[in-house]
Design a binder for these strands. Structure first.
Lengths: 230, 230
DNA sequence: CTCAATACTGACATAATTGTCAATATATTC
DNA sequence: GAATATATTGACAATTATGTCAGTATTGAG
C-alpha cells in the first residue's frame, strides 16, 4: 500500500520568466528508430559482458554507455531477461553466419585445415567466447531460439569438403565421425583458448607471438591428421 | 536525497505482544569447528556455482544449503569477496594437486598420452571447468594466491617424461615448445569441452558414449603426434 | 497545422542481497 | 562448575538492482 506521493511535480519549475514560449529549452532529446536503439543497446551490452563478465550486465551501466536512461532499455526489451534473450539470439545468429561463411570461402576445395583455421579464429574471438561461455554457464544456451543446430551444419560443410577432395584424389571417403571429432576439437580448443589461453600463456611464459605460433602448430596438427587419413 | 525514514517503525508491527523481553527460541544449535564450517560452506558454494553459474552464488542460498544463517558465512569469510577468494584459492590448489598427481603416477615412463588423458579428465570435470571459467570471466583468476604457475610445473613434468623416454630409446630430445603446445591444446580442449561439449554433442546428435569416443580419439591424435616427433 | 504514435525520461516503488550488531548457545579450559 | 572464546543467529540497515508510471519530446501522416 502506502500510495505515497503519486502527485507529480509538474513542469512548473522555472516558469514565470518573461520568455513566454518554449519554457523547456534544455531538453534536446535524441530519438532513434526502435531498430537502431535496440542495436546500440545490444552492442553496449555485449561490450560490457565481454569486458567485465557476467556481473557487468547491469541496465544502468548499459544505459549510460549508450547515453540513455535505463527505462529506455526496458521499453525496447520488456525486461532484463528480454535483453538477455535478444543478446543470445543475436550472438547465435552472428556466430552461425561467421562460421558458415568461413567455411564457404571460394572454391579452394582442398585446404581443409585452412578453413578449420578460420573456424578457430571465429570461435576464439574473445568477446564471442566470453559471451557464449556466460550463456552456457547460466544455462541459457538456447534461450534465443529453439533450433541451435549450428554444429550439424558445420560438420556437414567440412565433411562435404573432405569428400569432394577425396573424390578428386580417388581416395576412400573419410569417416564422418572423424570429421565431427575434428570439429569438436577445434571448437573446444578455440573456445577454451579464448578463455584460459591468456592465463595459460602467461603462466608458461609465452608471449603474444607464442599464441600465434600455437595456432599455427594446431593447424599443422590437424593437417597431419588429415593427411594420414587420406 | 530520498530522505528515507531514518527512524524505526518501532511498534508499528505486532504491537500487542509483550515485545519488551527477547523471546526464548531454545533451539539446539549445531556448532562446528571453524575449519569444518569453512569447508562445508566452500563445498556448497562450489556446488551452486557449478549448477547455476555465476548468478547462483548468493549468501542466502549457500547458507540454506549448509543449513546455517548467512551471517555465519560472513563470520567465516569476512565478506562475499572473501568467500570468493577462498573459493578460488582452494580450487587452484585442488586443481594443481590433481594435475600433478595425475602426471606423477607410477614409473610408466613411456606412455605420455596416457598421462595427458588424465590431465584431460581432470580439467574437463564439469564443476572445475565451470568454476575456473567463472573465475576467468570475472577477472579474478589470481585472486586466490599470487603464484599461479601451475602450467609451468605441468609442462616441466611432461617434458621430463618425454626426455626420459627419448633417452631410453636414444632419440633426440623433444622440443620444449612442442610439449608446451600439447599441454595448451589439452588444457584448452578439455576446458572447452567441459563447457560447450554437451552443447556441441547434442547439436551434432552425439550421445554420451560419443563423448567418450571423442576423448579416446583425442588421445590417439596426441599419441600419433608424439610418435611422429620421436 | 494538428494529431496520433511512440521513443524517451525522471521519480518512485519493489525486491533482492550484502553487511552490521547485539544477543545466545556451545565447546573448551582452568 | 565457572569462565572464556567463539560459532551462530535474528533483526535490521544499507545498497543496489529491476521494474512501473505518468508525463514529455519528436517524428511522421493526414
Amino acid at each position: 500500500m502506502s500510495s505515497v506521493a503519486k502527485n507529480r511535480p509538474k513542469a512548473a519549475e522555472t516558469a514565470g520568466k518573461s520568455g513566454e514560449i518554449t519554457p523547456r529549452p534544455a531538453a534536446k532529446r535524441v530519438r532513434r528508430t526502435a531498430e537502431e536503439a535496440r542495436r546500440l543497446i545490444l552492442d553496449a551490452a555485449e561490450e560490457r559482458l565481454a569486458r567485465q563478465g557476467p556481473e557487468g550486465l547491469r541496465l544502468q551501466d548499459i544505459a549510460r554507455d549508450v547515453g540513455i536512461s535505463h527505462p529506455a532499455i526496458l521499453h525496447h526489451f520488456e525486461s532484463r531477461e528480454g535483453l538477455v534473450r535478444a543478446l543470445i539470439g543475436r550472438a547465435n545468429r552472428q556466430l552461425r553466419d561467421t562460421l558458415l561463411s568461413a567455411l564457404d570461402g571460394g572454391g579452394k576445395g582442398g585446404d581443409t585445415a585452412y578453413h578449420i583455421g578460420h573456424v578457430f579464429e571465429a570461435l576464439s574471438d574473445r568477446g564471442t567466447a566470453r559471451l557464449f561461455s556466460w550463456m552456457l554457464l547460466t544455462g541459457r544456451a538456447n534461450a534465443g531460439q529453439p533450433d541451435n543446430n549450428v554444429m550439424g551444419e558445420i560438420v556437414d560443410a567440412i565433411q562435404a569438403r573432405r569428400e569432394e577432395h577425396s573424390r578428386q584424389s580417388g581416395q576412400a571417403a573419410p569417416d564422418r565421425e572423424d570429421t565431427l571429432f575434428i570439429a569438436m576439437l577445434t571448437a573446444s580448443a578455440a573456445f577454451g583458448e579464448a578463455i584460459i589461453g591468456r592465463q595459460l600463456a602467461e603462466s608458461a611464459g609465452l608471449d603474444q607471438d607464442g599464441l600465434k605460433r600455437f595456432r599455427l602448430w594446431f593447424a599443422q596438427l590437424v593437417n597431419d591428421h588429415l593427411d594420414d587419413k587420406k
